[in-house]
C-alpha cells in the first residue's frame, strides 16, 4: 500500500478527510481491499484501546506544598492580572456619563489648554458603547505605555 493510501485510511478513521468524495472513495477501498481493511481494523482497535484509558498519574508532592509555590509566584507578580483589563466598578460606570459631560465641558472651555500639550487630554475620559449581546465594559488605560485598551468579548478571529 502506498504511504498516501495508508494515511488516507487513517484520516478516514479520524473523520479528517477533506471531502465527501474522499470519504466515499476510501470507504469503497476498505470494502474491496483486504489489506486496507486489515489496517483500518488495527488502527481502530488501537484507538479504542486508548480511549478513556489515559494513564493516571498523581502529583508526587503534597497539594499544600504544590499550591504554596504557585501562590508565592503569583504574589511575586503582585497584580491579579498584568494582562488584563480590569472590570470597571459600577460606580465608575454610573458616573461615566458625568465624566463625559465634564470632558466635553473641558474641551469647550479649555481648548487652549488642550492644544497646549497632549498629556492634558486625559485618555481616561472615554465613552464606550457595547453591542447588545456584550454588556461587559472592560477597558483600561496604561499611563506608562500611553495606551487605552478596550476589550471586546466573544469575538474571535477578526
Amino acid at each position: 500500500m502506498k504511504t498516501e493510501t495508508i494515511l488516507e485510511v487513517q484520516a478516514y478513521l479520524d473523520d479528517e478527510l477533506a471531502s465527501e468524495n474522499d470519504v466515499k472513495r476510501v470507504a469503497n477501498l476498505l470494502a474491496h481491499d483486504e489489506e486496507a481493511a486489515r489496517l483500518f481494523k488495527s488502527l481502530k482497535a488501537t484507538r479504542q484501546l486508548l480511549e478513556g484509558n489515559e494513564p493516571e498519574v498523581k502529583l508526587p508532592e503534597s497539594g499544600d506544598f504544590y499550591w504554596s509555590k504557585i501562590a508565592r509566584a503569583i504574589e511575586r507578580d503582585s497584580a491579579p492580572s498584568k494582562v488584563a483589563p480590569h472590570v470597571t466598578p459600577w460606580w465608575v460606570r454610573a458616573l461615566a456619563p458625568l465624566a463625559g459631560v465634564a470632558c466635553v465641558g473641558l474641551l469647550l472651555a479649555g481648548s487652549g489648554v488642550l492644544n497646549a500639550g497632549g498629556k492634558a487630554r486625559s485618555a481616561y475620559l472615554h465613552e464606550i458603547e457595547n453591542s447588545v449581546d456584550d454588556s461587559s465594559g472592560i477597558s483600561f488605560h496604561s499611563q506608562s505605555q500611553g495606551m487605552t485598551v478596550v476589550w471586546v468579548k466573544g469575538y474571535e478571529n477578526p
Binding site: A123, H126, I128, V152
Partner: peptide, 13 residues
Amino acid sequence: LKKVRQVIPPGEL
C-alpha cells in the same frame, strides 16, 4: 460590536 469615543492624544494608542 463596540463603539468608543475617545480623545487620542498624539503619541498615544
